[in-house]
Design a protein around this nucleic acid. Sequence first.
DNA 1: GATTTTCATTAAGATATCTTAAGAAATACG
DNA 2: CGTATTTCTTAAGATATCTTAATGAAAATC
Lengths: 189, 189
Amino acid sequence: MKDQLHNYLNRYVIFSEEEMNILFKLFEYRTFPKKEHLLVQDELCKYQFFITEGLVRSYYIDEKGDERITQFAIENWWVTNLDSYKNLSPSALFIQAIEKTTVLRISKENLELAFESIPKLERAFRIITENMLVAIQKRYEFYQKKSSKERYQQMIAALPDFSQRVPQYMIASYLEISPEYLSSLRKDI
Amino acid sequence: MKDQLHNYLNRYVIFSEEEMNILFKLFEYRTFPKKEHLLVQDELCKYQFFITEGLVRSYYIDEKGDERITQFAIENWWVTNLDSYKNLSPSALFIQAIEKTTVLRISKENLELAFESIPKLERAFRIITENMLVAIQKRYEFYQKKSSKERYQQMIAALPDFSQRVPQYMIASYLEISPEYLSSLRKDI
DNA sequence: GATTTTCATTAAGATATCTTAAGAAATACG
DNA sequence: CGTATTTCTTAAGATATCTTAATGAAAATC
């Protein structure tokens, strides 16, 4: 568990065992069974979650009462509602385990402590945040360029295991397609 | 010019005069007349641009040959193609001055030097990047939730000066609306 | 293993938005 | 100024995608 986090962070900046020991103490280990929420709407998002195992989604409920998935996250990804976390605003999003999920979570206070005691952690988080920004920009460029059908085809080609682990209507929601229309697209393929 | 950058960065982390002197030397000052490009497609984006005056857009050309605007940036904002900049990949985007624009630009090499000599700059950039991430997430949530008409109404309500400084067809492009349809929406309002 | 719940499919009708093409208005330019 | 370029509008027809509603299949639960 500690090694997993260590290996992950070492991709960006090398941390010593000792630094990792300090850092690791600031995290809490949690398990969420399938369907349990890591965060619910209107609550404050107090943590950043590093997923060590499992699969979660973040989503909101739109005006019509439908769920709209904004993100999936798996092993070795971070998930949080950054707006709520940073600005202490009530979360517009839910974060929910799709499978049994284990996480290391860190509170804002503890992450601030970590930044103070291990300054180069700032660098790691700066780079990770930049990568997330690039990823989200690419994603929306892709959505803008491609039709529903192409989005679906490329998603299952790029992430074939996802189609196994996630129900189809959730993939539809993530791709911004109605489940009925996705179903009819699949018939054509 | 130096003060403008200093004031801006002090929002995030306090820098001394001396630190600012070191940092400022690593930037270059540039002026771009209206319509000139800061970056063109297929080039490498070698800089991050801090806009000190003026207004730019970043956009790409889609399959049909139409321009699609992904971002506007004004005074005290950063603009770059982060994907190209970080990954040394040819830029899919253009960045162009809509008005006469002055910038402070910094190369990747110099920014790395700056991070090394002024480590707390990492913190400032980490926070700035987080803010950008929140902004882009909110933007796309808004696009997903709102109709074309609502997007336009809220944009001109939120940024009334923009409607003056930017031609309508560019606003349409940014809002992901065809210019003809935006024109017809305006008639209704 | 039967029952309930969740998930996927089908089909018909509705609609938001785009496309094309043309002309009008505004702005820039020699 | 007058011409050229850029920007905006109008209107008709096309289409991708959604909605609703019903049925069927699969999976979960007791």
